[in-house]
Design a protein around this nucleic acid. Structure first.
Lengths: 235, 235
DNA sequence: GAGTGGTCTAGACCACATG
DNA sequence: ATGTGGTCTAGACCACTCA
């Protein structure tokens, strides 16, 4: 049997059609029996692919009517999934001002969360992200040096850390745990972000993991309140 | 056929066994074929129930080994789901100081988000929530007066708004959309929460919906940073 | 009434984990 | 070697929507 299951093939095919716009929001898909015969599989297999797309809010099923491409929900894709900074902001005009990029021995708190041994080095990235030229957030990322040494000096592909990890080293982040709070801006952050010292910022601490549960990235971010987070909660 | 599908019956049965502790974290469930014969259904039907429990992180499946009750993940249940204040805080010692409870004509911003007509009244609840006696958050809730008039004067069942809506009026919230940011504490909020005026607070605006998409509650909350939010993000 | 998605069956072969 | 979950089949009947 092919190493990749049929329902994942179908999932990927439909996903790319949706992302490319070949299937636009509101469009009706072929019926389940029709898809089954198109892909040469049984209906249950098609349903496995559709179930997954529906759970990601990319499809809406209406009994007796059909299966439709969902209207993009600002709320869902913005925060219930792990994405790039631009994806989370829902904007594309993101530029980056890198304040520091290099390898250092991390403080104990970082070392613990990344599971590093004493004196083991880590890559530290300190960046200011700007949306349409306006400073929006300060991001500090720590990664094990052994994972990707070149990260300490090479430029990121397309300015995206996660994209670079995947394309350059095949490191695929699987999930992340976040803590969200609020803090008063320090003098340095205030200067970078163009706000008053002591003014409120959204503070996020994030640990990202790969498939087997190994922590790969510890990130702190400080975001101006004009760039809030969005989330959709299910019952 | 029974009005409720078999896989939901099985789902509910396993869920209650997990919640009651009859199935404890780490326990192995019967195998899928065994469950199928126990419930008198086919294996695919059992799998539908298990799929749902797995997607809620209540079960972990290990190929070749078995299906196990998951270790409760602090992170997941705390914020990716819509729950009571206590559930979200992950604590049980929550008390409430009600500052206002009554019906008023809401400001336009509230009226719009709840889809009310001009001059239509709304119930307003203003509460300070305390965790182990420490003020943690100010919560302001707005609901259509027509939905639950008694809410304007009667006490909440167990101090829970969502619980009261469900038990008293059968109103079941289905999902909510949140915006999370940071603000400086106003004088009034600072006083209630025991913090300095101008100090940073987590600010959340939430609109909760019932099944058919009707907005039922608009809530604002202001939370001390010592009580952060937790979230788990999937890829 | 024809077509859709929702549920369900009774099998099958496979990759994998464990003793 | 045995048993587990992962994938898949080729049907079936149902409730529902829509023309």
């Amino acid at each position: 049997m092919s190493p990749v299951p049929m329902y994942e093939v179908i999932y990927g095919d439909l996903l790319s059609q949706i992302k490319s716009g070949a299937l636009a929001p509101g469009d009706r898909l072929s019926s389940e029996p029709a898809l089954a015969s198109q892909y040469g599989v049984s209906r249950m297999t098609v349903r496995q692919a559709l179930d997954q797309l529906e759970s990601e809010h990319l499809l809406v099923r209406r009994r007796g009517s059909g299966t439709y491409v969902a209207e993009p929900s600002a709320t869902y894709r913005r925060m219930n999934r792990l994405g790039s900074f631009g994806e989370e902001m829902g904007v594309s005009e993101v530029t980056t001002d890198t304040k520091f990029q290099g390898s250092v021995v991390p403080p104990d708190e970082v070392r613990g969360k990344l599971g590093l041994k004493p004196r083991q080095k880590a890559v530290r990235l300190l960046r200011v992200r700007l949306v349409s030229g306006t400073p929006a957030a300060v991001q500090e990322s720590w990664l094990p040096y052994s994972l990707a040494p070149q990260l300490a000096r090479e430029e990121l592909i397309g300015g995206s850390l996660y994209g670079t990890l995947l394309e350059r080293w095949g490191v695929k982040l699987k999930w992340a745990e976040q803590t969200i709070s609020a803090v008063a801006a320090t003098g340095e952050h205030a200067g970078w972000l163009g706000v008053e010292q002591g003014s409120p910022l959204i503070s996020i601490t994030r640990v990202a993991f790969v498939d087997d549960g190994t922590p790969i990235e510890l990130a702190h971010s400080w975001t101006r309140p004009e760039f809030p987070l969005f989330a959709r909660l299910e019952t």
